[in-house]
Deep mutational scan, measured.
Amino acid sequence: CHSECLGNCSQPDDPTKCVACRNFYLDGRCVETCPPPYYHFQDWRCVNFSFCQDLHHKCKNSRRQGCHQYVIHNNKCIPECPSGYTMNSSNLLCTPCLGPCPKVCHLLEGEKTIDSVTSAQELRGCTVINGSLIINIRGGNNLAAELEANLGLIEEISGYLKIRRSYALVSLSFFRKLRLIRGETLEIGNYSFYALDNQNLRQLWDWSKHNLTITQGKLFFHYNPKLCLSEIHKMEEVSGTKGRQERNDIALKTNGDQASCENELLKFSYIRTSFDKILLRWEPYWPPDFRDLLGFMLFYKEAPYQNVTEFDGQDACGSNSWTVVDIDPPLRSNDPKSQNHPGWLMRGLKPWTQYAIFVKTLVTFSDERRTYGAKSDIIYVQTDATNPSVPLDPISVSNSSSQIILKWKPPSDPNGNITHYLVFWERQAEDSELFELDYCLKGLKLPSRTWSPPFESEDSQKHNQSEYEDSAGECCSCPKTDSQILKELEESSFRKTFEDYLHNVVFVPRKT
């Protein structure tokens, strides 16, 4: 048989008469490798580009789960590009990614509803959504962080984005990388972005840091009482949809009607710091009717980097990364020049730590249904340095008659930039024990000054392991946590139920 035959053949030295091919099969003959313009397919066939392209389009058009959109890589027609490569849609070739590779997620039936953290986790790592997304989240724990972890990498949506009755959302900033909504599939009414009845939605994105392009379709905003109209108009300008909307697409009466839409800028007039305090004062603000001013709200939190936005980490279910302080308005003076500047002394802060701070007014709604208010920009203030805590785990070892090696770990709280350490030492008198000992005694162990690591005695271990207080009263049991108490109650309830079950099964009433 021919060298490319495997198993047997019907005619000697003829690659077209093989029972099976050793390498690849091409047009009725066995070959060692697939010549151009053919590609290896499933490690035994040679196919042309049209064959591989037909497989790709067949799966793409069917949208069946589990099928493969075949691509070409290293002269092979394979189910998908290997790690580190992405497909070129024009020629199906796998090309190296520039940075992290995109991950295209194809949605069944063309859309997916995100109504819980669990459903959001199914899209973790996706960068391109081939379909439409509907966000409908009523509640949950730590929602802002969970949504950002699972949806934060999405850069492109081919269909539309719909935010509907998501009472738990305060902001859409968890879509931190969303840059493009194509609108290839539109919501009824030709809408590519749809926001309806979101009672706590206050911000779409921080438009000073976020760009969003909507290729096709219109915007729809109705019944978002805490979303200011200025935020919607800003989205029109940034996304390129200005002029597409009709009169009733953006409701003037049901958007922002319960919001404090600040239209003035508060400026800080005085800032002073110490290692654990920050004193702030800002310019006074009074609405047209000074009785509408209820006070100020001061927001602050630790910020290692200057990239904080107002609604980071917030949701309507209680999660809030900001510390909020309510401040009463100052006494009002008739003389504008003698107006008191409101302020606040922030206490209990960490030394040498940068804080993000902003302040906003708290006002009631005027009778004319106009909203007044003022808010400052987010500023960054760093507390002063102070003395560091003591170095940890000092170790001293003498390696000769004239040297001592000293080692330690950095302090747990540096409280500033540590530039150097101060080492103090003092000579001590020799131990009298060394002169009084009889060095001729056998088995004498000389006193040693070398360091030995501390260890816990058996008594201390027994005390720590004991669940009861000892007789001397030195140790006591740790208080039980809520989960331990709940577990004990469940076990007790189970024992009672099981005992009742045994009584009912074992003891049967005697027939009379």
Score class of each variant (00 low, 15 high):
residue 212 L to F: 14
residue 235 M to A: 10
residue 407 K to V: 13
residue 351 P to K: 04
residue 400 S to R: 11
residue 135 I to R: 02
residue 338 S to Y: 06
residue 179 R to L: 07
residue 361 T to I: 05
residue 387 N to G: 05
residue 221 F to M: 14
residue 357 I to V: 12
residue 200 N to Q: 10
residue 131 G to Y: 02
residue 215 T to E: 09
residue 332 R to P: 10
residue 258 Q to V: 10
residue 202 R to Y: 09
residue 305 Y to I: 15
residue 127 T to I: 05
residue 360 K to A: 14
residue 174 F to K: 00
residue 383 T to C: 06
residue 374 A to D: 01
residue 216 Q to A: 11
residue 262 E to M: 04
residue 392 L to K: 08
residue 128 V to A: 06
residue 127 T to Q: 09
residue 339 Q to W: 05
residue 386 T to L: 13
residue 252 L to W: 12
residue 255 N to H: 05
residue 260 S to F: 03
residue 331 L to I: 13
residue 172 L to H: 00
residue 185 T to M: 08
residue 307 N to I: 15
residue 279 L to R: 09
residue 328 D to L: 04
residue 381 V to I: 10
residue 298 L to R: 00
residue 189 G to A: 09
residue 127 T to N: 07
residue 233 H to M: 00
residue 323 T to I: 08
residue 194 Y to M: 11
residue 292 D to T: 06
residue 352 W to H: 14
residue 322 W to R: 01
residue 252 L to I: 11
residue 203 Q to T: 12
residue 106 H to G: 06
residue 370 R to W: 13
residue 114 I to N: 02
residue 262 E to C: 08
residue 287 P to A: 06
residue 381 V to F: 01
residue 350 K to P: 01
residue 127 T to V: 04
residue 368 E to W: 15
residue 188 I to W: 03
residue 186 L to A: 05
residue 167 Y to S: 03
residue 169 L to Y: 03
residue 231 E to S: 12
residue 246 E to S: 08
residue 371 T to D: 05
residue 159 G to I: 00
residue 370 R to M: 03
residue 277 K to C: 14
residue 368 E to K: 14
residue 155 E to V: 14
residue 316 A to F: 12
residue 112 K to P: 02
residue 305 Y to A: 14
residue 118 T to N: 15
residue 170 V to L: 12
residue 155 E to H: 12
residue 176 R to Y: 10
residue 205 W to K: 03
residue 338 S to V: 14
residue 349 L to S: 01
residue 217 G to K: 03
residue 401 S to I: 07
residue 398 S to P: 14
residue 264 E to T: 11
residue 241 T to Q: 14
residue 307 N to S: 11
residue 409 K to H: 03
residue 284 P to M: 13
residue 180 L to V: 09
residue 358 F to G: 15
residue 162 K to L: 13
residue 109 E to V: 02
residue 218 K to S: 01
residue 346 M to N: 01
residue 211 N to Y: 08
residue 339 Q to A: 08
residue 307 N to Y: 03
residue 186 L to F: 09
residue 375 K to Y: 07
residue 389 S to L: 12
residue 120 A to Y: 07
residue 205 W to V: 03
residue 168 A to Y: 12
residue 108 L to C: 03
residue 385 A to R: 14
residue 210 H to N: 04
residue 119 S to C: 12
residue 383 T to I: 01
residue 145 A to N: 09
residue 202 R to S: 13
residue 209 K to V: 14
residue 371 T to R: 07
residue 134 I to T: 14
residue 136 N to V: 13
residue 325 V to T: 15
residue 170 V to R: 05
residue 194 Y to E: 14
residue 125 G to Q: 14
residue 233 H to P: 01
residue 320 N to S: 05
residue 346 M to V: 05
residue 290 F to S: 11
residue 139 G to L: 07
residue 247 R to G: 14
residue 127 T to S: 08
residue 325 V to M: 07
residue 282 W to N: 02
residue 351 P to A: 05
residue 173 S to L: 09
residue 265 L to E: 06
residue 183 G to K: 02
residue 118 T to M: 05
residue 161 L to Y: 01
residue 227 L to D: 00
residue 266 L to M: 09
residue 394 P to Y: 08
residue 397 V to S: 11
residue 264 E to W: 14
residue 344 W to P: 00
residue 114 I to K: 00
residue 404 I to G: 00
residue 172 L to W: 00
residue 115 D to T: 12
residue 170 V to P: 07
residue 356 A to Y: 00
residue 282 W to Y: 00
residue 388 P to R: 15
residue 363 V to E: 01
residue 367 D to V: 15
residue 273 T to Q: 13
residue 151 L to R: 00
residue 263 N to S: 10
residue 402 S to W: 07
residue 317 C to W: 15
residue 119 S to R: 05
residue 151 L to Y: 01
residue 322 W to D: 01
residue 298 L to I: 06
residue 358 F to S: 09
residue 153 L to N: 12
residue 319 S to G: 08
residue 253 K to R: 07
residue 295 G to I: 04
residue 411 P to A: 13
residue 382 Q to N: 14
residue 170 V to M: 05
residue 141 N to W: 10
residue 347 R to L: 08
residue 232 I to N: 01
residue 158 S to C: 13
residue 328 D to F: 07
residue 369 R to S: 07
residue 107 L to R: 05
residue 395 I to G: 14
residue 199 Q to W: 14
